[in-house]
Design a protein around this nucleic acid. Sequence first.
DNA 1: TGGTGTCGATACCGTACGGGTATCGTCGCC
DNA 2: GGCGACGATACCCGTACGGTATCGACACCA
Lengths: 283, 283
Amino acid sequence: MELRTLRYFVAVAEELHFGRAAARLHMSQPPLSRAIKQLETDVGAVLLHRSAAGVTLTPAGAALLDEARTLLDQADRVRARVAAAAGVATITVGILGDSADRGATRLAAAYRRRHPGVEVRIRDTDLTDPTCGLRAGLVDVALTRGPFDETGLTVHELRADPVGAVLRADDPLARRDRLKLADLADRRWFQFPDGTDRIWQSYWNGGEPREGPVVRAVQECLQAVLWNGTVGMTPLGHDPPEELAVVPLIDMAPSRVVAAWNEGDANPLIRSIVQIATAAYRD
Amino acid sequence: MELRTLRYFVAVAEELHFGRAAARLHMSQPPLSRAIKQLETDVGAVLLHRSAAGVTLTPAGAALLDEARTLLDQADRVRARVAAAAGVATITVGILGDSADRGATRLAAAYRRRHPGVEVRIRDTDLTDPTCGLRAGLVDVALTRGPFDETGLTVHELRADPVGAVLRADDPLARRDRLKLADLADRRWFQFPDGTDRIWQSYWNGGEPREGPVVRAVQECLQAVLWNGTVGMTPLGHDPPEELAVVPLIDMAPSRVVAAWNEGDANPLIRSIVQIATAAYRD
DNA sequence: TGGTGTCGATACCGTACGGGTATCGTCGCC
DNA sequence: GGCGACGATACCCGTACGGTATCGACACCA
């Protein structure tokens, strides 16, 4: 008899319908049926009458429904009490400019649900430091995009996106359905400010240092393409803005969306957010 | 956060020592450490300070200890309340004469712990009916020994014992360390009463019907060997009584100790007892 | 009466998690 | 500085949970 099983039972007892209960629990019907049967052998009583007419509660089932509800309520309150006893917990999350995508949105929602008492500080950073200030202690955990120098950090991959070239829509290459890096060899690129992570810089400049306008944010990259006539790279998957085209680059390694934190940082809130993020990005 | 995890935490918080807590929980230390760490990321707070000096509770840990104790107490009471609502549950267990071995003893203890409110009626039966009256509805579940006619029954194996020949200690064959059935071909056997299950009869008479004294119980078999000079068969593993010897029979299929119940009987108490029996006999 | 649809149960499969053993890292302590 | 105690880590394995496909029972309707 575990809390999970009791949650299952409450759902079935309230819906009086295995299929609907399974939908409510975001699972399929067979494992739910099995879990309820297991619960019945565990408590040693039939909890539900199943018949073609429908599902009804037995006296034992009615009693368990009542008991389980109060038990689950109290379990929920345990979290809040522990959080209160721990004091006001704070976690600072660094988010790289372009990472506020669907995964990050869902992560925020799921995290607030799990840790309502935790004060989350978001630090939105530009492209100068892909680690969002991890090493300087400015943030506890970074939700960012690779690749970058990982020494001293623990990095957990959330997703991997193939990348494409960003071109003006009227560029001759924009009609191609795929490109190689060599196709862009004679084009102007933008460059990153001095001090930007070397690995990051080399990846997003197509493998070599470049001359060109300096950019500090994703929006600036796109503007550079539009106004300065450069080319650039961006992860696939987002619809490009008007007047720009993104063409897959087939010889570039995918760019990883990752969670990163300082090696050895024992803060459980970090582990927790990484765990939730893994689920949120899994789709 | 599951009840199991909370039980683990309470053990560690009370012992303030992972190793001792693990021993108390009948598990080893590493998975316990892992479970506690997982609980910490789950609730989002450090619960224990680990240092060489020892383990101490954080404020959050102290709060959780208190909360978890009450939650676990209530969870325990849920079982009792459900049992009460289900009314006085009764289960009749048939036990074949010789099955009151260590497994059965442990089963009884474990079952009483799990279902304190259930009235268990034991029906100890002789060898005439290896199913202990299952088909007649005299018992809900039989803890017995095979082989027997299984039509209409569901049979769950608990253990398989090799069998041996029972001989008087002064029998010339008693010195052998193993025998074949053929070695006993010219000996007198006991026989079972009319109406005894055919499969059972043929197995325990060494493959063929026999002439000889009629026996109804295990003790009578042994007496028949002593007093009537017959031979017989018995499962290995028990020390034979004084003046008798048991020699392994290498060409007999092992005899299975099983739980059996009427096919389709949905009584959860049956499922439960079978489940507990499986664990109790696993050693 | 036989076809059809609904719904819970069953069968089967792949993965993930909980348990195990072996070993490491760290910190007192003699 | 070597040693012992103890929690953490690494790795392996079996169970159990969740998935899909299918069955069986029953009500409803033509």
